[in-house]
Nucleic acid binder design. Structure first.
Length: 924
RNA sequence: GCUCGAGUGGUGGAAUUGGUAGACACGCCGGACUUAAAAUCCUGUGCUCUUUGGGGCGUGCGGGUUCAAGUCCCGCCUCGAGUACCA
């Protein structure tokens, strides 16, 4: 009987299911290993061949670790809140939960076919109330905490309130937005609303008016990482700036820890670098500039305080709150016009406009804090309101943007660098000696920075500070299909819902659109539609997509706990994710937010680790390979690729299911589309129609989408698993091409024949294994173990092939050898190996209860080696010599050879290098 | 512009600390089996010259270090990803 993958795969999938083979529980006698896939958003399109790449890799490694004796946690679930289901709901009126369930079912079927060893009893869905109850609960904890910069961790807000009561906020060192200083007496005099408003400036989850990225098409705000090239990541709609009252997360408080702890993570440099850039730490100094004839000062942030004597003007962001106050009457109209124009610009406009210089003089002046000079104040949109203080001291001789601005508006450019020419461009490098800079004259950059900060601090005019580009994360969305907040309002004061009333479930609404007043869809729900209602109204916003995914890896550890989000005992056992596999597109979103929440939960003592993912692998994208046919212009004739030269043809995408190895199935093609039914062809000389090909992203319109379903039908899941791994290194993007799949399939069939007769009966014998058989086996064990340990999954497949080729050559049918080999192969081809394991007489249970073989050095010992003999580094011939020979003996053997004499050509070698077991190099 | 990757046969890729470049597979050429095809098996396959013994050239390009470089160093080029007025 030939290898019948359909029957075998169906059989073992149902075996595993009915035996709950992949159920895991905490077991302190075993070492744990946690392998996690980034869980998918269940879209309507189902999985294409790119999706399973990471899942297969994690499954191989999970099964390997299991066979090695680890207790492996390998769960799967769904990130099931999201925009597509809601957009569909808006169009059709169907509740997004229904669409989502349907899509999940489809995903599950596809995942099941691939033979993954997930413990499905741990499945979770972020949109299920059992789950989002705890997302809401975590939100409450964030709401109830602030960040204490002395303890360098999150602390309960009640501690802060006590401090306010005793001594006000003057000694508090916390990450906050509070600009006023108040005493304990002040605090006591605040009414409830004022107290809460003040606390909001400290809470880690807080409500504030902030500039947000508003997407009118989607009717919601978006986080920075949800915007790609100035357009919404989902849908590609325009995005504009708008000031709105929004929930935010004070992630800034964690900036330094998020940055510093990257060093210990086993992630790729590229992801770490992206996070570093996103956090964007810059060390510098804040300086106060007093506004002339006003009481206010303007605070600027600069990384180059050493250039302070080069300041020629000040620039404020157009949105800066002081602009209104300081603008002189003569300039008022022009300034207002400029502000209006700037506010209309979308982020995208600002980006594409980088080269246009614009700005407006306010007519006001600041006094230079050290020289006492009068300095003009401008506004310009190259200064961003949301970074630093929204104001810069412009030093044209040391900053190119300031330089360009000064040139454009004809402002004086002072040169404070000795012997450096700044007539053409600013000197932006961080070196040089200062001049015309009072007490900084003659100093180099680093020394000058140190000195000027010292002096500014002594005079209370400035302070050494650190700035981060990372902004607090906007946490509310004006959408329906997301977690409701555990918040209600009483007289406009936000209050949290008590734990026993969680979860706040999504209420029924009559439509998923905003209300006529522009309120989010939840505002449509009347009082009785909420499962809990308190105060004057519930919060109408919902949480963003990243809420549920920021902690899901914790819930898998204890998925049905009804009293805690995860028990301490279980999170202590499973601990960090040992291996996390997923796409690199989450570099600054999900991966940063998960780290933030993990650190917070650690600070509060709920878990005992402060980084979620120890090792991260980013799987590359699988690209589609499109096929083309070439149609003669205006005719229904298609020309094979080899014959198109000299003809005017138009390439047309053709469905890749009609093409195999670039050869077109002509009958299928004629049936594909009605207008091709009477097509004629110009064929190659051998009668084939050869198609052209191109690598592109997979998409329906290019007819190049490969679903795993078709391939599993044709070759089986084991072949697909092996093939996806065989394609190349997991991290690399690569084109999908089914050309090679038959090779992998043939490998399995060839392997099958080692174990079975044509009638399907086992041909394994309990004879003595030969030396060669043992050598091949143990060499294979060694290589596979080494490769799996360094996540080199593609080279393992080659190693399997080499072994099977060798066993076939040896006509090996030794039971011990071939059974060991089955265990090696099993993580890649689980159904296949289970079947052969059973056939070989292992009646009881599953192969995965066996243990992974170890290699024995003694079988690997070679007694001779084909020494490459090279002359001047070029290999000329080989000679087989015993490995027991030492350097001198090898030399003697080699010198005596005829071939050596030939290549020496009568010359005396200058030098001979002998590396035993490796190479001989003769230098002439 | 800046940051980070990557460039190896016709194709996907291998070469783990510098030591036989091209493993393994696809594709292709030729052969066996077959009435024929499919399947299977065998042989060859980096380019190039050749008197068929073998020779020359070869890991994006140009230098360098070394007995020896795909691998290390310097300078370029190309492609991909991320980011973008961050003071």
């Amino acid at each position: 009987m030939e290898y019948n993958f359909r029957e075998i795969e169906a059989k073992w999938i149902s075996f595993w299911k009915s035996n709950k083979s992949y159920k895991v529980s905490e077991d302190s006698s075993k070492q744990k290993y946690y392998v996690l896939d980034m869980f998918p958003y269940p879209s309507g399109a189902g999985l294409h061949v790119g999706h399973p790449l990471g899942y297969i890799a994690s499954d191989v490694l999970a099964r390997y670790k299991k066979l090695e004796g680890y207790n492996v946690l390998h769960p799967m679930g769904y990130d099931s809140f999201g925009l597509p289901a809601e957009q569909y709901a808006i169009q059709t009126g169907q509740h997004p939960a229904i669409t989502t369930d349907k899509n999940i079912e489809r995903y599950r079927n596809q995942l099941d076919q691939l033979g993954f060893c997930y413990d499905w009893d741990r499945e979770l869905r972020t949109s299920s109330p059992d789950y989002y109850k705890w997302t809401q609960w975590i939100f409450k904890q964030l709401f109830d905490c602030y960040y204490d910069e002395r303890l360098n961790k999150a602390v309960r807000i009640s501690a802060l309130v006590s401090e306010f009561e005793i001594s006000g906020n003057q000694n508090v060192q916390a990450t906050n937005d509070c600009e006023s200083v108040f005493s304990s007496k002040d605090w006591m005099s605040f009414d409830a609303a004022k107290k809460e408003a003040t606390l909001q400036q400290y809470r880690l989850a807080y409500l504030a008016d902030s500039w947000v990225n508003w997407c009118p098409e989607l009717g919601t705000v978006l986080a920075n990482d949800e915007i790609v090239n100035g357009k919404s990541e989902r849908g590609g709609h325009p995005v504009m700036q708008k000031k709105m009252r929004q929930w935010s997360m004070r992630i800034k408080a964690y900036a330094e820890r998020l940055l510093k702890d990257l060093d210990h993570l086993d992630w790729t440099d590229s992801i770490k670098e992206q996070q570093r850039n996103w956090i964007g730490k810059s060390v510098g100094c804040s300086v106060l500039f007093e506004v002339e004839s006003h009481t206010e000062s303007i605070e600027v942030f600069t990384t180059r305080p050493d250039t302070i004597f080069g300041v020629s003007f000040m620039v404020l962001a157009p949105e800066h709150p002081l602009v209104k106050e300081i603008t002189t009457n003569e300039n008022r109209t022009a300034v207002l016009d400029y502000q209006r124009a700037a506010s209309k610009k979308t982020e995208r406009d600002r980006q594409s406009d980088v080269k246009t210089i614009s700005g407006q003089n306010t007519g006001a002046f600041v006094i230079h804090p050290l020289s006492g000079e009068k300095i003009q104040i401008w506004i310009a949109d190259y200064v961003l309101a949301s970074y630093g203080t929204g104001a810069v001291m412009a030093v044209p001789c040391g900053d190119q943007r300031d330089f360009d601005f000064a040139k454009y508006f004809d402002i004086e450019i002072k040169n404070i660098f000795d012997n450096i020419d700044v007539s053409e461009a600013a000197h932006i490098e961080k070196w040089g000696t200062l001049k015309d800079s009072s007490f900084l004259n003659g100093l180099e950059v680093v020394a000058a920075i140190k000195k000027v900060i010292q002096i500014l601090e002594a005079k209370s005019l400035g302070k050494g500070t650190t700035n981060y580009r990372l902004r607090d994360a906007v946490f509310s969305r004006q959408r329906y299909w997301g977690e409701p907040f555990p918040i209600f309002y009483q007289e406009n004061i936000p209050k949290t819902v008590s734990d026993e009333n969680l979860p706040i479930e999504l209420p029924k609404v009559d439509s998923y659109l905003p209300t006529q007043q522009g309120e989010p869809p939840l505002a449509r729900a009347d009082k009785s539609s909420w499962n809990y209602f308190a105060g004057d109204r519930m919060e109408y916003n919902t949480m963003p997509g990243w809420a549920g995914s920021s902690w899901y890896f914790l819930r898998y550890m204890d998925p049905s706990n009804e009293v805690e989000f995860v028990s301490k005992e279980k999170s202590d056992y499973w601990n960090q994710v040992d291996l996390y596999i997923g796409g690199a597109e989450h570099a600054t979103g999900h991966l940063l937010y998960s780290r933030f929440w993990t650190k917070f939960l650690f600070d509060q003592g709920y878990i005992s680790f402060d980084e979620p993912f120890k090792k991260l692998i980013n799987q590359g994208m699988i690209l589609g390979k499109s096929s083309f046919v070439y149609r003669l212009l205006d005719r229904n004739t298609f020309v094979s690729k080899g014959k198109i030269q000299g003809k005017e043809t138009q390439p047309i995408h053709v469905d890749i299911s009609l093409v195999e190895n670039n050869k077109l199935d002509l009958d299928g093609f004629k049936k594909w589309r009605p207008d091709y039914s009477d097509a004629s062809f110009v064929l190659e000389d051998n009668g084939d129609y050869v198609c052209g090909e191109e690598v592109e992203k997979m998409s329906k319109s290019k007819f190049n989408v490969e679903t795993p379903d078709d391939l599993i039908q044709k070759y089986g899941a084991d072949t697909l698993r092996l093939y996806e791994m065989f394609l190349g290194p997991i991290e690399q993007s690569k084109p999908w091409d089914t050309k090679g799949i038959s090779g992998v399939h043939n490998f399995l069939r060839k392997c099958w024949r080692l174990y079975c007769n044509a009638d399907g009966s086992s041909i394994l014998k309990e004879n003595e294994p030969t030396k060669d058989e043992l050598k091949t086996l143990h060499k294979t064990i060694k290589r596979i173990r080494e490769d799996l340990d360094r996540y080199s999954l593609n080279t393992c497949v080659s190693t399997f092939m080499i072994a099977v080729n060798a066993f076939t050559d040896y006509k090996c049918n030794n039971k011990v050898v071939l059974e060991s080999f089955l265990i090696l192969l099993a993580p890649y081809a689980p159904h296949f190996c289970e079947e052969l394991w059973m056939k070989s007489g292992q009646k009881e249970g599953s192969l995965f209860e066996a243990s992974y073989p170890n290699y024995d050095e003694k079988h690997l010992v070679e007694d001779s080696f084909d020494y490459p003999i090279s002359f001047n580094g070029k290999m000329r011939f080989k000679v087989n010599l015993s490995l027991s020979l030492n350097r001198e003996e090898i030399l003697k053997e080699v010198e005596g050879l005829e071939l050596t004499k030939k290549w020496l050509d009568g010359k005396n070698p200058k030098k001979i290098i002998v590396v035993p077991g490796k190479i001989v190099n003769i230098v002439l």
